[in-house]
Design a protein around this nucleic acid. Structure first.
Length: 643
RNA sequence: GCCCAUGUAGCUCAGUUGGCAGAGCACUUCCUUGGUAAGGAAGAGGUCUCCGGUUCAAUUCCGGACAUGGGCUCCA
């Protein structure tokens, strides 16, 4: 007799031909109910599979729906149901791929016509029928030749292509009802396991992500173990929608774009500009504290600069077209680096001068393809919080470490405390020697290792001139935003013949570090808006307090209060409109102003203010000085000093 | 750039099976002087994104452009 051994030490006997499903039913029905598949000797396996009865003891561990892996299997099975529904509703459907993604899954289909919203409704209904039918997912192995001819006969050319790329001799195939799909599995035992799903959208997607290949129609969907979880997920999606910086940007009058001006070019309205100004001031003062030199350089330069730098060759399609000036071609700049290099080169530099750190809020222009523009997150003109560090080889790793610390300090000041850090290594298309690449990657890795931070390696994702560290910030609702980047560059110093005089009196080549902490001010601002849902902390709020009068008898005193607060440097508005207090409060609340100061007869007589905090609601009346002290205390970045 | 959808008042959105267009909010004026999330009344406001075509007639149908949105691709 053979038996299954569970991780808690218990075991269950079974006889020849019994499937795991049947064995588990005898072992623990409740456990079976929560399981979607199981791990057999560490390998994810279908519950429908039959264990090898010639082995005496098999160690197994159920994969619970509640686990990430279990949910993944569950969603993947739902994708198969979707594929079946689509195949049964439309003629000549060619199946692409149907993977799971964060919070859901998609499936790509080659169909005659794109799906309409009505199609999605039909597909949804058919899926529910299939689930109701509780069809078994039957796993099966095919040898490759067999599989190839099977899918060829079915007219599934994309599947053929996938099979041809699989290195193994056999491939997995799953059948539910009359629908068969290529899949490594595992899957749910049957379609009836699926409790809650929703088709979310349809969009075109290139086969294998290659724009030269056919465009397939992708349906996005999500699936959850219970209806309650699905509902909660949809609620979160709506929450994210409410935080949309484009929506909030309009509602709070922060910025706009205009068709008259051109796509991807941002107009910063007074309130948005106020926040941006505060960010810039903070950025400048911190850079001075941490030994950067702040510089300014032109927005326009001769195109030769970009030919020398290599950007002309690598990014020509993303540069704005040259303009002819006095027989010379100029372009608006896509990068700031050559300018910083020219400043470096304006003197003969000694090793004693290094490291040199030049920082600039440098506005750049890049021609982004029309389909990629998105609010403030992807625009055609934006300001990088750029810096270039020129170091000796000995200083490189230490400087990278310093930049890393500085980056995290700045990000934390803005209320971001969760990060994902990636080290991106050499891409296929690159310049420079393999030796330099190895040194650069080594320096980045060394700095990361000694920082003690967790990071992941992103192979092949580096820039053409060097490897980089990317830091993605996580906002309050867990979304990731790519902002900071630190890049090592041996290439530009070479191309621009940048040198310094070394200790022996000879010439050496410095190494450059490019870095941006916030990335672009536009993107970072968009990200801040969504992070705070428009309710900026006091130090960033465009209006820190709004004074609300109860009747026009209070106007004079209110004006006095406003003046005092303004003179103390606070950003204050005064609302003396002929409206009721409730109306004014509602407005202050919707505008997300941190404090409303109510001033009625009582306050006017006693010379006080009655604050109302956006977070905590109405407070007791207090002397103006007391309120100013309270504001003063709260009016600081949240980061804390760097050592 | 590619696929799909959308474009009506400052904003959010109705509407017209082709016959000179509507609501709420905001705005202006008047009444109301009201103590912690919308007081009342009146008024003004639109070349229905733009350019062509079909038609007696186009905001509506057709074509194109532009913009926006969801994706794909891309992001130095």
């Amino acid at each position: 007799m053979s038996h299954l051994k569970f991780s808690d030490g218990t075991s269950q006997e079974f006889s020849l031909g019994e499937s795991y499903l049947e064995i588990l039913k005898a072992y623990d029905k409740k456990l079976l109910k929560k399981s979607v598949a199981l791990k057999v000797e560490g390998v994810a396996t279908d519950l429908r599979a039959v264990p090898d009865a010639s082995t005496e003891s098999i160690s197994v561990e159920p994969i619970l729906l509640a686990s990430p892996e279990g949910l993944d299997i569950y969603r993947h099975s739902t994708a198969h149901v979707m594929a079946e529904a689509v195949t049964s509703l439309f003629d000549g459907v060619k199946l692409g791929i149907g993977p799971t993604i964060d919070n859901g899954f998609y499936y790509d289909f080659g169909v005659e016509k794109p799906f309409t919203p009505e199609d999605l409704v039909k597909i949804d209904a058919r899926m529910r029928e299939i689930i109701k039918g509780n069809h078994k997912f039957e796993p099966q192995k095919m040898n490759k030749a067999e599989a190839l001819s099977f899918f060829k006969e079915a007219g599934q050319e994309y599947k053929e292509e996938i099979i041809a790329d699989i290195p193994d001799d056999t491939v997995g195939v799953y059948t539910q009802g009359s629908f068969t799909d290529l899949c490594r599995g595992p899957h749910l035992p049957s379609t009836g396991y699926i409790q809650a799903f929703k088709l979310t959208s349809a969009a075109g997607a290139y086969w294998r992500g290659d724009e030269k290949r056919p465009m397939l129609q992708r349906i996005y969907a999500t699936a959850w173990g219970t209806k309650a979880e699905l509902k909660e997920h949809l609620r979160l999606m709506e929450e994210a929608l409410k935080r949309d910086h484009r929506k909030i940007g309009r509602a709070l009058d922060l910025f706009s774009t205009s068709e008259e001006i051109g796509a991807g070019l941002v107009l910063w309205h007074p309130k948005g500009a106020t926040v941006r100004g505060i960010i810039e001031d903070f950025w400048k003062s911190e850079h001075r504290k941490y030994d950067y030199d702040i510089i300014y350089t032109p927005h326009l330069a001769r195109v030769d600069l970009w030919k020398t730098s290599g950007h002309w060759d690598f990014y020509q399609e993303n540069l704005f077209s040259p303009m002819d000036l006095d027989g010379q071609e100029y372009i608006v700049r896509p990068m700031n680096c050559p300018f910083h290099i020219e400043i470096y080169k304006s003197h003969l530099r000694s090793y004693r001068d290094l490291p040199i750190r030049y920082a600039e809020l440098g506005t750049v222009y890049r021609y982004e393809r029309s389909g990629v523009l998105h609010g403030l997150l992807r625009v055609r003109g934006f300001t990088q919080d750029d810096a270039h560090l020129f170091t000796t080889p000995d200083q490189l790793e230490g400087e990278i470490g310093g930049v890393l610390d500085f980056t995290l300090y700045i990000l934390k000041s803005f209320g971001f405390n969760d990060f994902d850090i990636y080290l991106s290594t050499r891409p296929d298309k690159y310049v420079g020697s393999l030796d330099d690449w190895a040194r650069a990657e080594g320096a980045l890795k060394g700095a990361l290792d000694s920082s003690g931070l967790d990071y992941m390696i992103d192979p092949g994702e580096g820039v053409f001139y060097g490897p980089k560290i990317d830091i993605k910030i996580k906002d309050v609702i867990g979304r990731s935003w790519q902002c900071s980047t630190i890049q090592v560059d041996f290439n530009l110093p070479e191309r621009f013949d940048v040198t310094y005089r070394n200790e022996e009196g000879g010439e050496s080549r410095p190494i450059m570090i490019h870095r941006a902490l916030m990335g672009s001010l536009e993107r970072f601002f968009g990200c801040l808006v969504e992070h705070y849902a428009g309710a900026f902390p006091l130090w960033l709020a465009p209006v820190q307090a709004v004074i609300l009068t109860v009747t026009d008898r209070n106007n004079e005193y209110a004006e006095e209060v406003r003046k005092k607060l303004r003179r103390a440097g606070f950003r204050i508005e005064l609302d003396i409109r002929n409206e009721k207090l409730g109306f004014k409060i509602r407005e202050a609340e919707l505008q997300k102003v941190p404090y409303a100061l109510v001033i009625g007869d009582k306050e006017t007589e006693s010379g006080t203010v009655a604050p109302r905090s956006k977070e905590a609601g109405a407070m007791d009346a207090m002397a103006l000085d007391e309120f100013m002290e309270l504001m003063e205390k709260e009016n600081i970045p949240r980061g804390g000093e760097l050592s």
